[in-house]
Amino acid sequence: MAKLKDLALKPERLTGGHRLCPGCGVPHVARLALRCTDDHLVVGASTGCLEVSTTIYPYSAWKCSFIHNAFENVAATVSGVEAAYRALKKRGAVKENFKFIAFGGDGGTYDIGLQSLSGAMERGHNMVYICYDNEAYQNTGNQRSSSTPMGSNTTTTPVGSESYGRVGKRKDLTAIMAAHHIPYVAQAGAHNWKDLSRKFERALEVEGPAFINVLTPCVPGWKYDGKNTINISRLAAETCFWPSYEIDHGKWKLNFFPKEKKPVEEFLKTQGRFRHLFRPESRHVIDLLQQEVDEYWERLLFLCGKSDKAPQAAK
């Protein structure tokens, strides 16, 4: 595993000057991923924050080759690039070694791009898909996606006299990807460079497809002060709202076990999108969220061999 000093000395492949928000959780995750291989890279991005903010014509923040095709098809697009690489390498038209990374937000990954992602992973392309999950369509102003947590105040699930925000549970995309039985699947948070860089390195070194789901707090969508991005991501891990784990060749492994599992409120209270839940009449929503987090955590402990208690059926 690379040391922080070594990583810092690697060439910068996503330069400064891009127009992502101050405090955004996405760019340092992307920059870290690009540092985790010495091979050449082709990066693809689905339509979304990362894409629109880094390639405003005639500028590009990408030092490596970059392609944006559409919203729902970054996995298929990069799978085509990877197929081209195999073909050109075979006939000697490309000599250098390349790696392939596809970036998509939760909208482009959990929702509109899920089919494209599933197909590319199933076909076994040697590529890494990184979902930067900021839990709503943040590029277009915080509309609800299937990753949005229960109770979140979004612009399409606004809080009102008859509404406490998003109703129902978010989708467990990491488990869906694990069900593809690809070489490597992982979940991580934006706060832990060590955990993240180890996972990126592993994803880039395995033969075949890899998927990493990274929680990346969003300043305007989650409504918090930009200096708190890392703290909020850490709280997501400490409350088990967003556990860090991996499935390496079928073996589930928990990567972070909090000494003291904090109540989910500790995470919720840092963000304006959950502010309304702290009114007395919304207490039941926090309880429901806590229950969802607890059930997920129990199931994960069982899958990772940390508990003999078989998970209960979801209530």
Binding site: V42, E51, S65, I67, V81, Y85, F98
Partner: peptide, 13 residues
């Protein structure tokens, strides 16, 4: 895209 000596950005906004 696979030109290592001449990386390119395709599909800018």
């Amino acid at each position: 895209l696979l030109d290592a000596a001449k990386p390119m950005t395709l599909g800018a906004l």
